[in-house]
C-alpha cells in the first residue's frame, strides 16, 4: 500500500560543495541516496519537491557540514494479505520467485493450485496446467501475500496463488 509519509534525513556535505548551489547539492544528495531505498519496513518511492533544510552545522574535526532535511515522500509498504502484481524472475522445481517492485516474494509448491504442475523438460522450465496458464520467467502474475518478514534493508514475502482471481495475468 502507498502512503505519504514525512521523513527526516541527516545529510553530510563535503566542504567543496559549500557555495551558492548548496541547496541543489543537498537536494541531489537526497534524491540519489533516498529514492528507491528500503528501510526494511517500507520503500521510498518518490520524494516530493517541498522540503525543509535545517541550518548546517560543521562537524568538529572533519570539516563536513551536517544538514537535517525534512521531506515528504511517497512510500510503499506491503502488508500481509495484500494482493500484488509482479513479474516472475525465476522458476524452479519448488516454486517460483516474483518481484513486486522492491519486494521479492516466493510462491512455493504448496501455494500453487494443484492443477498447475512443474514441467522441467520445457525450455525454459515452467509451471503450467497445460492450458492457458503458463508461468515462466517474465510472466506477469497476481499473488497474495501470505507471510512477510523484514530485515534491516530488505523484505521477504511468501505469496500464494491458491485463491480466486490470482495467478498469471492475461497479456
Amino acid at each position: 500500500m502507498f502512503f505519504l509519509k514525512e521523513l527526516e534525513k541527516t545529510i553530510q556535505l563535503h566542504p567543496s560543495y559549500f557555495g551558492p548551489l548548496i541547496r541543489s547539492h543537498i537536494h541531489r544528495e537526497l534524491l540519489t541516496k533516498e529514492e528507491g531505498s528500503s528501510t526494511g519496513k517500507f520503500t521510498i518511492v518518490c520524494i516530493l519537491d517541498s522540503f525543509e533544510i535545517s541550518d548546517g552545522q560543521v562537524i568538529p574535526g572533519s570539516g563536513y557540514a551536517e544538514y537535517i532535511v525534512h521531506y515528504k515522500a511517497i512510500v510503499w509498504r506491503p502488508y500481509k494479505g495484500e494482493v500484488l502484481d509482479g513479474v516472475v524472475t525465476s522458476v524452479i522445481r519448488s516454486g517460483f520467485f516474483v518481484d513486486c517492485g522492491s519486494l521479492q516474494a516466493f510462491v512455493g509448491q504448496g501455494m500453487i493450485p494443484g492443477d498447475i504442475k512443474f514441467d522441467a523438460n520445457a525450455t525454459p522450465p515452467q509451471w503450467t496446467d497445460n492450458a492457458d496458464q503458463v508461468i515462466e520467467k517474465g510472466t506477469n502474475i497476481r499473488i497474495k501475500i501470505k507471510g512477510l518478514r523484514s530485515e534491516v534493508d530488505k523484505m521477504y514475502a511468501i505469496g500464494t496463488m491458491k485463491e480466486d482471481y490470482l495467478g498469471p495475468l492475461q497479456q
Binding site: 516454486g95 516466493f106 510462491v107 504448496g110 501470505k146 512477510l148 518478514r149 521477504y156
Partner: peptide, 11 residues
Amino acid sequence: VQFGSLCADCG
C-alpha cells in the same frame, strides 16, 4: 522449504 526465513508453505 523456507524463503528468507519464512516458511514457503505456511508463511
